[in-house]
Amino acid sequence: MNDKLEHFVLEYDHESGTALLAMTEAGGSRIAEGGSLPYAVASGYEAESRAWESIEPFDDVTRAKLRFEKRCGRDYVPTGGKLYDDEFITLRWRRKDIADALENDWGNFGFPIPATEKNVERAMDQLGNHIDDTVYSQGWGVIHDHLDPNSFDLGVGHTVQAREFYEQVFECAGDYDCTVNIWPAVDGGGVHVSVCPVAHGGNDLAVYSVDADKIGDSAITVRDLEDVGCREVYVEDFTERPDEVRFFLRADADAYMFGSSLGKSLTVQYTGDEDIAPALREVRAYCKDAAEKRDPCLISAMAQASAAKSATAEGEAGGKKL
């Protein structure tokens, strides 16, 4: 062991020879962070080698404290048994619960196990080594399996079209090939084109508007959109900045037309050189033919009302984000 301080002792129990450690970095000047697992429970200190016989690392000081107290033979409940301010579910087992399981759940074990003090302690040791990680990992599964994503306000407005666009964007995360969506502008004067991801295998999103008179008979690729269209939105990484996607969908009335029966939307799987001009022309033609059947002012008002409703809901929630 070198002369730099690799840890310092937070607590030490002489009777059991167990210590609660905080691991350090930068020559012992600060507690380690992240993947370094900054806390540990250690035992069997050898003064000559200045080393511990066993060290069990933890990434959370509370979990380390629980294990330390258990090895010292003491009961310990964080916060005196009360919930933390941000907790709403907790689970606690008593020694009697373990004893009852050994004696009465013998169908699972194959035979009843005497609930002696030694057997209860041995069961607690085995559970303590595994239950924290199991509860954490399975807890995420419970969240994923029992929450209905369709029941939440996604903050994109209250239109099916905006939600469909939002969901489709995140389905593209990490795709190698691009997905190109084309749909009409409210006023029928052009089309919108979304490209996701723009960079193959990335998580970026771009939305362009293309005037109808810019869509001629020549071939148009995604790379040409920078010249023939106007970029409305660019999100470098929508997985890190979903708020930018949400803002676009709330604020832009034309997003209301995406996938709507009022408009025509086409999806093109784009691998690099495809000509998307035929799809642009098809949507453009539909725009012109259907313009008389739509009231742009009414559609804009509907989209704005939807955005206002979502903004009001956020305001009532206090605008809080975790």
Results as ranks from 00 to 15, higher is better:
1 M>A: 14
5 L>H: 09
6 E>T: 11
7 H>M: 03
10 L>Q: 13
11 E>D: 11
14 H>T: 12
14 H>M: 11
15 E>W: 03
15 E>L: 13
17 G>R: 07
19 A>V: 04
20 L>G: 02
21 L>D: 11
23 M>K: 15
25 E>H: 08
28 G>A: 08
28 G>V: 05
30 R>C: 07
30 R>Y: 03
31 I>N: 08
34 G>S: 09
41 V>G: 04
43 S>E: 13
43 S>M: 10
48 E>M: 07
50 R>Q: 14
59 D>A: 12
68 F>K: 05
68 F>Q: 04
71 R>I: 02
72 C>W: 06
76 Y>V: 02
82 K>W: 02
84 Y>P: 02
90 T>S: 15
96 K>V: 10
98 I>P: 05
99 A>S: 11
102 L>I: 08
109 F>C: 01
109 F>I: 03
113 I>H: 11
113 I>W: 09
113 I>V: 15
114 P>K: 14
116 T>N: 02
116 T>R: 01
116 T>I: 07
125 D>L: 08
127 L>I: 14
129 N>H: 10
129 N>R: 14
130 H>L: 05
132 D>Y: 14
134 T>D: 09
139 G>S: 03
145 D>E: 07
146 H>S: 06
147 L>S: 11
149 P>E: 10
151 S>C: 02
154 L>N: 05
155 G>L: 05
155 G>H: 07
157 G>H: 02
159 T>N: 04
162 A>Y: 01
164 E>V: 02
165 F>K: 00
170 F>L: 04
171 E>H: 09
174 G>W: 06
174 G>N: 05
175 D>R: 14
176 Y>T: 10
176 Y>K: 06
176 Y>C: 03
177 D>Q: 07
182 I>K: 02
183 W>D: 00
186 V>C: 08
189 G>C: 07
189 G>I: 03
195 V>T: 09
196 C>F: 00
199 A>W: 01
199 A>K: 12
202 G>H: 04
207 V>T: 00
207 V>A: 00
208 Y>H: 10
209 S>K: 07
212 A>R: 13
213 D>Q: 13
215 I>N: 05
217 D>L: 12
224 D>G: 01
229 G>D: 09
232 E>P: 02
233 V>A: 03
234 Y>V: 07
235 V>A: 10
241 R>T: 12
242 P>D: 08
243 D>Q: 14
244 E>D: 12
244 E>A: 12
246 R>H: 04
246 R>W: 03
250 R>E: 12
251 A>M: 05
251 A>W: 04
256 Y>Q: 06
257 M>F: 00
260 S>V: 01
261 S>D: 14
265 S>F: 00
266 L>M: 11
269 Q>Y: 10
270 Y>C: 04
271 T>R: 14
271 T>P: 02
275 D>F: 06
281 R>W: 05
282 E>A: 11
285 A>N: 14
286 Y>D: 15
290 A>W: 01
292 E>A: 15
298 L>Y: 08
300 S>C: 13
301 A>C: 00
302 M>N: 06
304 Q>D: 15
305 A>G: 11
305 A>H: 09
309 K>Q: 14
319 G>N: 15
322 L>A: 13
322 L>K: 11
